[in-house]
Amino acid sequence: MSNHENHTHVHRDDEAQKLGMWLFIFTELLLFGGLFLVYSIFRAQYPENFHESSLELSVTLGVINTVILLVSSMSVAIALTAVQKSNYKLAKLMLLLTVALALAFMVNKYFEWGAKFHHGLYPGSELMQLLDRGHHLYFSLYFFMTGLHALHIIIGVILLLISYVKINKGKVVSDNFMHLENAALYWHLVDLIWIFLFPLLYLIS
């Protein structure tokens, strides 16, 4: 730290900040990777049950949410490019669009889960206890994986809103944008996980 007040050289290491974020992303990848592995093993063990259970999911809602996440991933990448080009107005607009898309994703998820709950299908419900082992495992994994993913969406929205405020305050600018960059990396991670969750849970049957 410099003692000269007028010579404001703040020590900053963008590469280290980015590397730190990536190391955290590695732990997230392995967390979800472990769940994918559990899914694969039980799928190999109960192929019929997994097939029948996956037919219960609405592919339409899954597709809508996939499109929402892909577009939001692009909009947050545009926000970063806009900040780097000092176009803060566009950056803020794109961040708001990303947050709006995230909320749309959550509303979809609410209806999807709501329909399952309505049919008595939720973790620990009486119906779940009566199901065959394979069905039970499929829906437990479905609720756990999509639930954990939805939790990441909520965290991602909070991070993006903090970036928005920082742009507003002039703390995220074209030559200092690591907060937005790391928040965007987190958001892309959420998209990346969904890219694998969607075909595995909704499509492959």
């Binding site: 963008d14 892909l70 991933s73 692009m74 990448a77 545009i78 970063l80 490019t81 080009k85």
Partner: peptide, 18 residues
């Protein structure tokens, strides 16, 4: 490493990837 200017991904590339 901080000397080198970061690469800015053009809007066009992002659109094509989407």
């Amino acid at each position: 490493m901080s000397e080198h200017t970061p690469h800015i991904t053009p809007y066009r590339t992002l659109g094509i990837i989407l």
